[in-house]
Design a protein around this nucleic acid. Structure first.
Ligand SMILES: [Mn+2]
Ligand SMILES: [Mn+2]
Ligand SMILES: [Zn+2]
Ligand SMILES: [Zn+2]
Lengths: 141, 141
DNA sequence: TTTCAATTTTGTATTAAATATTATTTTATA
DNA sequence: TATAAAATAATATTTAATACAAAATTGAAA
């Protein structure tokens, strides 16, 4: 927990109880959670938590570079808490979002066609390995 | 217009008046329009057009591979009508979405980590060339 | 400690993209 | 022409995200 406090302080984010709990949840489930998943987890420990706080905290985290925002699905934002930049695969059958460690030739580039790059997101979409082998039928839009 | 009919027929899409007009708009403004932009354009020629029709038509076009769906912004879906696959740059200052012709090493790959790829989307985000030179101040979220 | 401003959290209301549902219109076919 | 299927339109609903204001908490000055 002391570790989490330092993480927030190093980014000039006041380590409130709510923010620490949200960071803890992101650390624990290193997946690609949406606001509702985080909110539901929080409810277990902070019954008074407000969804507005989750939105505002994630917005703060994103602004300070603590989390990355994924728009891989059109429904809602997914939040990624992982140090190394990486790409993602979205399975259109089961909805899984899988980390892809590709070596993007622009990963270390700060500029492209004269535009200054601050973030790179690579989205691969298709059918995941699991679904291919199990030959599942359900297909997401 | 005969050309547009053939495009739809070649993909087994019945060339209704509404669909042809939507395709025409997509051809004319080869940009990255959202449903509302297309709807507003349509209203000029088809005052009775329904937004539901725009949604359903674009959904059909996407299913048949006529358009590509971009989730580069979290607000709403953008539709891309261009033959060659390409990547995109989003300027977080002015909101411009610019085509990027990068040579992605996975562009011609159909598989990654055992997952079958059907679509690849590369999103670069930052400050566009225009904004850099004009040093504009407004910043989008 | 007390006071007070700034920050953070919460509750509520609102916005708007997207979908669902049903009715109407158009098209194709027997 | 009659009928079924497909496409369009109108309306209602859902829900992620934001806006706004009130309440609570924090931190520093007095
Ligand atoms: Mn990830
Ligand atoms: Mn494009
Ligand atoms: Zn899958
Ligand atoms: Zn710009």
């Amino acid at each position: 927990m002391d570790n989490l406090i330092k993480i927030l302080q190093s980014r000039n984010i006041h380590p409130s109880y709510q923010r620490l709990k949200i960071l803890e949840i992101l650390e624990k489930n290193k997946d690609h959670m949406n606001v509702n998943m985080i909110f539901e987890e929080l409810l277990k420990e902070i019954p008074t938590i407000s969804k507005t706080t989750v939105y505002s905290t994630l917005s703060t985290f994103a602004a300070k570079g603590l989390v990355h925002c994924l728009t891989i699905t059109p429904e809602e934002m997914k939040y990624d808490y992982r140090a190394k930049p990486h790409h993602h695969f979205l399975c259109t059958r089961c909805g899984a979002i899988i980390d892809i460690d590709v070596q993007c030739p622009y990963a270390d580039t700060m500029e492209i066609d004269g535009h200054s790059i601050e973030d790179i997101q690579g989205y691969f979409k298709g059918t995941c390995r699991e679904c291919l082998t199990h030959n599942k039928t359900q297909t997401l839009k």
